[in-house]
Structure formats: C-alpha cells, structure tokens
Design a protein around this nucleic acid. Structure first.
Length: 589
DNA sequence: CTGGGGAGGGGGCCC
DNA sequence: TGGGCCCCCTCCCCA
C-alpha cells in the first residue's frame, strides 16, 4: 500500500484559503496513479533501483519501495542496487511482494515454498506491513496461521534464514527492527518477535545482504556473458522486466550474492581476485545507469567489503551510531508524510553505511540525499551519485589520517610516497595520485577487458585505447604534417615526426653519445621514469650483478640489433617463483 | 646478405 | 576523454 497525502498539508496555506478544493476528491486517483506506476515499472521507465534476488533482477522505483517498507526505505536511500538474501525471499515470492506493493493485490500463491506462508515470511522480512496483514488474514481464513511467538514459519529453512537475516537490519539500526506484525505502540525491543527472537545478542552478522565477498564467482566467461535467463533451467519468474537486457556479469554476480550468508569458501574454490570479486556489481551498477563498467561506486563497495566484514565482528555501535529505536516508529508515523514533501528521510535509513552521521533533518534542508562519507547533502539521488563518484572512502581515510597525524612527515607510518600517491592498488601495490587513475589501473588486472572493438572484437582495458584503435580501422589520421603532408593517428606521432624535419635529436645515448630524434630508438633510455634501468653508466655492472642470477643466463647476443629479443634488451622479465631478472650487460664492451 | 638506424604504427598505461 | 609517454613490432633504407 502506497500512502501519500491526498491533500497537501495545511501549512501549504492554499488549502485553507480554498476550502472548496478540499471537498473535491477523485476516488480513483490513487488507483490510477498506482496503475501508471506499475506500468512504468513494467517498462523500466524512471526505475531508479534494482533489486537482486538470487538469479532474478527487479527494477522498481525507490519512492514506491520506500513508501511501502521501512526496511526497503533504509536500503534505497543509499543504494541503487539492493541485494536480498534469497534464503529469506525467493525470486518468485519477491515478485509477488513487488506486485503487491505496486497493485495492492496479492497474486495466486503456489503451494509449498512459493505459498502464502513464504509470502508472509518475506513480507515480514521486508517489513511490508500491509502484505503481512493480508497474508495473516488469508492464512487465518484457511486455518493455517498459527500465531506463535516466532511467527509463521512456512519451512525450516526460512526460519533459519530469518535468524540469519534479522540482524541485517540490526546492523543498520542500533536497535533491532520493528517486526511488522507488532502492534502499534508496542514497545520496540531488540527481541523482534517474528524476526528477531532468534537472534542471539552479541553476534553481528554481515550487514544488509550486500556482502558480495563470500564466494568466488563462476568462470570469467560466465561473468560477462549477457544472458536473457541467467539460469536456463530455472523456471522461477521473473528474471527481467520486459524490454530490458540482462546486465553483463549478472550471472556471476548473482551466484556471488546468493551466498552472502552461506559458508565461507571451501578449499578448492579458489581465492578470487579483488577486482573480480566485485565485477558483477560493477556491471550491474553500470547497467542500471546505462553506462559502461568501471564506476566508482561498485569499486568503492568492494573496497568496503573487508571493512564491513571487520565491522560485522564488532558491536555495531562502534561504526553505526545509535539511532533511537523510536525513529523506526517515527518512520511509520504520518507526521513525516504530512510534514515534509521532500521525499525520503535519511534518518535511520542510511543503511549499513550510517557511519558517523547523525540524522539532523533540519540541518540538511532540502538536501536529503546524503553522502555518507563526507556528510554533504543533495536534493536528488542523481546528484548524490554524481558526487559520490568524486571521492572514495580511501580519500576520506587519508584525509582523516592527515588531520589526526599533525606533522607532515609523521602521519601514522605513512611514507611520503603514500601521501603523494595515496591510492594503492590492492593487487600489485602500485599507487596513484587520484582514485580515477587507480580505478583505471585496476582494470588492467581484470581477466576480461571491458572495451571491445566493434569491428575486430579486440578488447581493451581503457575506452580511450579502444577508440584510438578504432581510428586504425577507419583510417582516421587527423594529425597532418605541414611539411610533408604525412598524416598520423596521434598527435604525439606528429610531434615525433616533426623532429625529422627540424633535425632535432633531443635523445642522447648515455653510452655512446649518439643522438636520436625518437626516444624509443634509444636502447636504454635514461630518464626519471625508467626506474632501475636509469642507472648511470658507471653503475651498470654493479646493477646487473645485483639483479642477475647465475645459471640460466642466455648466451651473449652477437650484436645489439634493434630487433633483438626483448629479454636481451635489458627489460625486466619476471620468472615464476624467483626474483625479477634483468639482463643489462651482455654485449656491453 | 646482414646489421644498424630511422621511422610508422599499435597497445598499455598514467595523468 | 584526450594527451602524453613508454614499450613493442615491424618495415625500409643504407652501409
């Protein structure tokens, strides 16, 4: 049931001045509006949130979800992508719940797990009170409802799931969730009746069903294959709303998500690369935003995951400040609906990233979409998303660290390099000045490159590289030499080429003194970016003695031809299980 | 014929 | 997103 004021609040003023308008009411207005919204949902029109349930994706409108469920409200405020524990709600049941939210009608329930009991359990888990009431009513009518303290438990698995999932909400709020079948005015305790009774105190489960790190995805190929039906043999419906393609990577993502509360990876499942671990989310998020993969958010989420796991081990109040349980009560109250027209309140609804922010609606004004890390408010979720792209949690971590550390060089063990390049790759230890570059770099670790050439299919890690490559297919050479008319695909090539005409040879060999117009024709270029190879002439031997291991050196080349194999050109060549070996000195004499 | 130098071009990667 | 730089492969010319 979606509730909004049929009449504007009195403080708007005009209602009092126009009493005749109050008397006019269109009885079918709400139904028509719901009908329109449901139609829009079916088409994916203006949908701003995706709900992932096991192997199914549902698109919906945040406002509708928020108006229907306190729990969903708490999730959609921060996230555009919700992951529901499939042990709590199956795709088929969630479809029924979503249909109910949008239509007020409960479709036919199959017997067994898809039955009314499962719907009730799901509605209770999702905190959709109207549906809970409806299910109870139906069950009582059929004589199947047994009002135990533990509530309806259609099957044991669900009951276990309830125990697992209840604290999910408790992680979001300092107090446990208000079970939806609790009577209004009943004191809200952490023992949550239908939901919370089984949750032992002191245990802190993963938050909010968003932990994606517990299980390795399937093979890389399956991660990126768009499929209309993620599990062809799976008859559960629905998978996608009409008119929408499955996002690439969804299969793996779902396989990943569905295990959020399962056992940790078993021996033999392998350790998934961090970049791989969140790729599915990456694609999903981008898919929802109609963008290419690689955005900040999902990577930020991935970065948060270890932290979330850590937080799950500790009492929630350390990270999630106390939000009084009566805020939940207030959440359902009509005062909010009538007292504000700005949309969802962030109070108590910030989800698992409540962080340090306390809910102070007065201070937020119209900017009710709050960036959790920095506390800035925005009037719309789109603006919030745009803002979130601009910084990462790491950025804030370093900011906080620098604020606490004081002196420049005494920052909690941070080296100068860490300060200059605070964004470190978790896979290879490379560091970067800004998060965008780090994200760009991390793509180089992905098994699958996200930017394929539409002509030849070759894939690239960067979009720019792909578009540059496309120029070669299309014969686009926009950079022309004024002197000879020769054309190039890149500006840099033209710059290089122009040195031929000018006779400029700025690159000098440190060994023989020969000069070159192009740096690439130097055998061992000396420069600030050539790392260990840029040793002075007199140090070469020492350097090579340190870096070379005996035993498996190739025979000295007979010459230093330009086309000699790479391993003879003084290039680092990593060997499995051993140190990097650099061959520098062969032939130097 | 061979090797060295010059140069075109593509991809990777960082800014 | 584009620029810049690096690495690499390759081809051509010439001694």
């Amino acid at each position: 049931q979606v509730a909004w004021p049929l009449r504007p609040p009195l403080r708007w003023g005009w209602a009092r001045r126009s009493p005749m308008l109050e008397a006019m009411e269109m009885p079918s207005h709400s139904r028509q509006l719901l009908l329109q919204l449901n139609t829009q949902r079916a088409k994916g029109f203006l949908c701003d949130v995706i709900i992932v349930v096991q192997n199914a994706l549902f698109r919906a409108h945040k406002n509708i979800l928020a108006a229907s469920s306190v729990y969903l409200k708490s999730l959609v405020v921060h996230d555009n992508l919700l992951n529901l524990d499939h042990e709590m709600v199956s795709p088929g049941v969630f479809r029924l719940v979503l249909d109910f939210i949008y239509t007020g009608r409960l479709g036919e329930c199959e017997p067994g797990e898809q039955g009314l009991g499962a719907v009730l359990a799901a509605a209770s888990y999702l905190q959709v009170p109207a549906l809970v009431a409806l299910c109870k009513k139906k069950l009582k009518r059929t004589g199947k409802y047994c009002h135990l303290r533990g509530g309806y438990s259609p099957y044991g698995k669900m009951a276990r799931g309830l125990r697992a999932a209840t604290p999910v909400i408790q992680t979001c709020y300092s107090a446990g969730p208000r079970p939806v079948d609790m009577q209004p005015g009943e004191p809200h305790s952490t023992q949550c009746g239908d939901l919370g009774s089984a949750h032992p105190r002191g245990t802190a489960p993963p938050p909010c069903g968003l932990d994606l790190s517990k299980k390795s995805p399937t093979s890389p190929s399956s991660q990126l294959l768009p499929t209309d039906r993620l599990h062809p043999g799976d008859s559960r419906e629905p998978l996608l709303p009409p008119g929408h393609d499955s996002p690439p990577g969804s299969a793996s993502l779902l396989a990943n998500h569905s295990s959020a509360y399962k056992d940790p990876p078993q021996v033999g499942e392998g350790v998934i690369h961090p970049a791989e671990r969140f790729r599915g989310r990456d694609f999903l998020y981008r898919w929802m935003k109609h963008e290419a993969p690689g955005s900040y958010l999902e990577e930020c989420e991935a970065e948060k995951e270890p932290e979330r796991e850590e937080k799950a081990e500790s009492p929630p109040q350390s990270r999630y400040p106390s939000i009084e349980s009566n805020e939940l009560e207030n959440d359902n109250s009509t005062s909010e609906d009538t007292g504000s027209s700005e949309g969802p309140s962030p109070g108590g609804t910030l989800g698992p990233y409540c962080s340090h922010l306390a809910y102070e609606p007065e201070s937020l004004g119209d900017n009710l979409y709050v960036c959790i890390p920095c506390g800035k408010g925005f009037p719309s979720s789109e603006q919030l998303n745009a803002h979130v792209e601009a910084h990462t949690e790491e950025e804030l971590y370093h900011k906080a660290a620098s604020e606490q550390a004081g002196p420049f060089l005494d920052k909690g063990g941070q080296s100068l390099g860490d300060i200059i390049r605070p964004y470190r790759c978790s896979s290879c230890d490379k560091a970067y000045k800004d998060p965008a570059t780090l994200r760009q770099h991390e793509k180089t670790h992905w098994l699958t490159r996200p930017y394929p050439c539409t002509i030849c299919g070759k894939k690239f890690t960067q979009r720019g590289t792909m578009t540059r490559h496309m120029r070669s297919h299309l014969g686009l050479k926009p950079f022309a030499c004024d002197a000879c008319g020769m054309r190039f695909t890149r500006q840099y090539r033209l710059t290089e080429h122009m040195r031929i005409h000018s006779g400029e040879k700025p690159y000098e060999c440190q060994v023989c003194g020969g000069k070159f117009a192009q740096q690439r024709n130097l055998i061992n270029p000396v420069g600030p970016s050539s790392d260990g190879l840029s040793v002075a002439f007199g140090e070469w031997e020492i350097f090579s003695l340190k870096m070379c291991s005996d035993g498996d050196l190739p025979p000295p080349p007979t010459s230093w031809g330009q086309t000699r194999p790479a391993e003879q050109r003084g290039e680092a060549k990593p060997l499995a299980g051993g140190p990097t070996r650099v061959l520098l000195l062969w032939g130097w004499e």
